[in-house]
Simulated scan of single mutants.
Amino acid sequence: MKKTLLFASLITFAVFSCGEKSTSKETHAEAHASSDGTTAKALAVKSSKSTTAIIDGYLAVKDALVADDQATASIKSVALVSDLKAYDIASSQANDPEELERLQVEATGFAEKLAAGDIAAQRESFQSLSVTMKEFLKIAGADRTLYHQYCPMYKGNKGGMWLSANEDIKNPLFGSSMLTCGRVEETLALN
């Protein structure tokens, strides 16, 4: 009974908080709670400078989508494709190079799709890219702490995720229509 009540409270909070902008610290802290009501969990990733260009490119696309800028998202995605293709798996010393290569190819495909289409199609490709990028960085490593953020209202309440360089929610899946909808699910922290 208590779990059901807690779950219902969290769902109600998510629905109402995604439609409103709030500056109170109490609401900000709750927005960073995970889906089970606890704080976001941390995931250790190895420190690696080899992914810097890829992360920079990914975040540039994210920022363009946050700003509802379809043209810039398209331009930045072309650069991201180049950075993904240039990534040298052999020198990465990854413990699973075959999986890393599969994720590199998959991420490149999603990034290529971002170059064309309207902003809704770009956002759909970006959400898929985000899932793949998280898995890619878990193996390849990162040069900074990243935050796995989640919006429960994306795709007809199926939800969607992205990575961010800071905890503040700036939703690329909705842009200005629901800029602050979301929460931090996980922190990808450097080892």
Rank of each mutant, 00 (worst) to 15 (best):
K2T: 11
L5W: 05
L6Q: 14
F7Q: 10
F7H: 10
F7L: 09
I11F: 11
T12Y: 11
T12S: 15
F13W: 13
F16T: 14
F16G: 05
C18Y: 07
C18I: 11
G19Q: 11
K21E: 12
K21A: 11
S22L: 03
T23R: 07
S24V: 05
E30L: 14
A33D: 11
S34T: 13
K46I: 13
K46V: 13
S47W: 00
K49C: 01
K49I: 06
T51V: 05
T52Y: 00
A60C: 04
K62T: 05
K62C: 01
D63V: 03
V66T: 03
V66G: 01
V66F: 05
Q70A: 15
Q70N: 15
A71P: 02
A71I: 12
T72Q: 15
A73P: 00
S74I: 00
S74W: 01
S77G: 05
V78M: 07
A79F: 02
A79S: 13
L80Q: 04
V81M: 02
D83Q: 12
Y87H: 06
D88I: 02
S92W: 01
S92I: 03
S92D: 15
S92M: 03
A94D: 11
A94I: 06
D96K: 15
D96A: 15
P97C: 10
P97I: 09
E99A: 15
E99T: 14
E101P: 01
L103K: 14
V105A: 11
E106F: 11
E106M: 09
A107L: 11
A107T: 05
T108Y: 00
T108A: 14
G109H: 04
L114E: 07
I119Q: 00
I119W: 02
I119D: 07
A120H: 11
Q122A: 04
R123N: 10
R123W: 07
E124M: 10
S125K: 04
F126R: 06
S128C: 02
L129I: 13
M133T: 07
K134A: 12
E135L: 08
F136A: 08
K138E: 13
I139S: 08
I139V: 13
I139R: 10
A142D: 08
L146V: 14
Y147P: 06
Y147M: 09
P152Y: 08
Y154M: 11
K158R: 12
K158G: 05
K158L: 12
W162Y: 07
S164I: 04
S164H: 02
A165Q: 15
D168I: 10
D168L: 12
I169L: 11
K170P: 00
N171L: 07
P172L: 06
L173R: 06
L173M: 06
F174E: 02
G175K: 08
S177Q: 14
E186Q: 12
L188H: 09
L190S: 05
N191H: 14
